[in-house]
Design a protein around this nucleic acid. Structure first.
Lengths: 336, 336
DNA sequence: GGCACGGGTTGGAACGTTAAAAGCACCGGC
DNA sequence: GCCGGTGCTTTTAACGTTCCAACCCGTGCC
């Protein structure tokens, strides 16, 4: 049915090894032999058996990725984009992504260990990194290759290589953009400060405000969860203050959309009355009206960096890449 | 580093084959031998090398899944749930999911062929099935195992096994639910009828209305795309009619949320003034207020059926499973 | 003419596993 | 005492590939 190296060799009247060389080290063959072998390969429609190859070379060219469980309605709105990008990046190096599920935290580590020990994957891409995430240290100890999308927060050193988006820089850009649009009282919609990510983005807004001489006292609201309702509630409290805000930087698109709903409910016009920005450029950002100004994570670049770091030369020092998100300006901050 | 069968065999003082049998056919061993071997396996922390096994048995226990590209802001809001479920289902049979990308339509088929020929996967799960989808026939001709999530529309026979959600039954349930809540003029928000899925769901609404003696003329709107704006526009036209609707069955959550926005904009209360249902139970459905009544696809069941069919005995006749969605009643159709 | 050299090619072994067949010890029946 | 099982274990031979060492042969050098 499917041709093997041996059959191709017989057809081209050379040894098996020569056919292998034709594919893996063509420079070793005399041009005429190479051509003869290549013709046979095409004629027989030969495709190398990946299992045999992996057995010999002990590299499976597969990268494990744990598909997050959508606990508690937490929507991963850009996960499909990320997966697509990660896949494409892996394929550009001849690799593929293997999906698996695992319990959260340290409990799931035996799954990682098992996949690696059974040689189903060469290494892992981690995402959904959490504060004090135990996975990184665990994998590092076991010397299992990995790279993380997202920093490990509140640790003195990063255990292993990572790629992340500079949330502080992003929120700084958004804040400055609002300032340039004439806003002078800019509020912040965030999450509780126990989350490293939340604190990072908060800092970007706070520092920029202070730099620009804008007030920050009482202008940061910490929403309990990432839902429309919480976003609306947070926005309401910012609008009900004795001195209401004229702009809001939200830590996520969901919160921003909640705020948008609240503005609309009050008969305020997002963009002209109150300017608004989100974070992530989720698919929803462009389908609401006015469309949401938001910070787009460079997903393709992130994915390529992740794969590069994971599959590149195994240097000792951890590789760290911090990428800047791009401000996508839409109607919610720049009407007309 | 990692123990092999040979090392375990030496440790337990038996032959390699006996260790293999201890794992794959324990009934062949004498109880005491089995115990001795098992102890050695655990002591050495042995894990079978999957590549070697696959080479020998020519089954890789991997299932290919083409990760959809999110063309044109089309949000796959339940894709992460589906992937998680598919993964879990595969793992419950000792298999895993391998992700890949491929151009849409017939152009991408060489990718499928290649993955199969190189023995990276045993078979495929297709999703995002389209009207006149060429993939099914192609795979069937090549005798590459696959199962489809979603029927192939507008063909006389289904090329190969599939699992799908009965959209007609779902919309019928929703319509009947609205009728039971006292609604007598129920509109439908759909997509153009070139889509088989759209026509299926439309039929469920239409037939049920006729059965209940409700009007349907001019009460179906076909939105050009799956966006909030289109949903809002469609809802507006149903509300502006000389005889406005008192309920709306929407073909998707996105359209329903657009309609919800339009209701809110007009000062109408969703649930009491106009009742509303969506389709998919996407994460957004429960975070808006009022929360959206919607039809939940039995994702876990779908995933299990897909894997069962694909990995079950290779019968000749195509296996077909049509599953009913579950109506999740929330505030948008039943206030209070 | 012998020898080192190097490009091109080959045979043999190995990667770690499982299928199939062979071996071995013990037992009951005639 | 031999025969045919039966129950457990080992031997042998693959699966399809790549690594390594060897080989062959023509060339240039002393």
């Amino acid at each position: 049915m499917v041709a093997t190296l041996k059959q191709v060799a017989a057809h081209a009247d050379v040894s098996v090894q020569t056919v292998s060389n034709a594919l893996n080290a063509p420079h070793r063959l005399r041009p005429d032999t190479l051509q003869r072998v290549t013709r046979s390969i095409e004629l027989l429609n030969y495709r190398p058996n990946r299992n045999a190859r992996s057995l010999r070379t002990s590299a499976v060219e597969l990268i494990g990725y744990c598909v997050p469980s959508w606990q508690g309605g937490q929507a991963h709105l850009v996960m499909d984009q990320f997966l697509h990008a990660l896949c494409a990046a892996a394929e550009s190096t001849g690799r593929h992504i293997l999906l698996f599920t695992a319990p959260a935290g340290a409990d799931g580590m035996s799954v990682y260990d098992d996949l690696h020990a059974r040689r189903l994957v060469d290494g892992f891409v981690l995402s959904q990194t959490e504060t004090h995430d135990p996975r990184h240290g665990w994998l590092k100890d076991k010397r299992i290759p990995f790279v993380s999308f997202g920093r490990v927060w509140k640790e003195t050193t990063q255990p292993g290589p990572y790629v992340d988006v500079d949330g502080a820089a992003g929120c700084a850009t958004a804040t400055r953009h609002l300032y340039d649009a004439g806003r002078r009282r800019i509020g912040f919609l965030g999450w509780p400060r126990t989350s490293g990510l939340a604190e990072d983005r908060l800092a970007g807004w706070r520092d920029t405000c202070q730099e620009l001489g804008l007030p920050t006292d009482g202008l940061a609201v910490h929403c309990a969860e990432d839902t429309f309702d919480e976003g609306a509630r947070g926005a309401a409290s910012l609008l009900d203050a004795t001195e209401p805000v004229d702009a809001i930087v939200a830590l996520s698109d969901i919160l921003a959309l909640g705020a948008l709903r609240e503005l609309t409910r009050r008969g305020l016009s997002a963009g002209s009355d109150v300017a608004l920005t989100g974070f992530d450029d989720s698919p929803l950002a462009s389908v609401v009206s006015p469309a949401l100004t938001t910070l787009r994570q460079p997903i393709d670049l992130i994915a390529h960096e992740l794969i590069n770091i994971l599959t590149g030369p195994a240097g000792d020092e951890p590789t760290e890449r911090l990428l800047k998100p791009e401000l996508i300006v839409r109607g919610s901050s720049a009407p007309g």
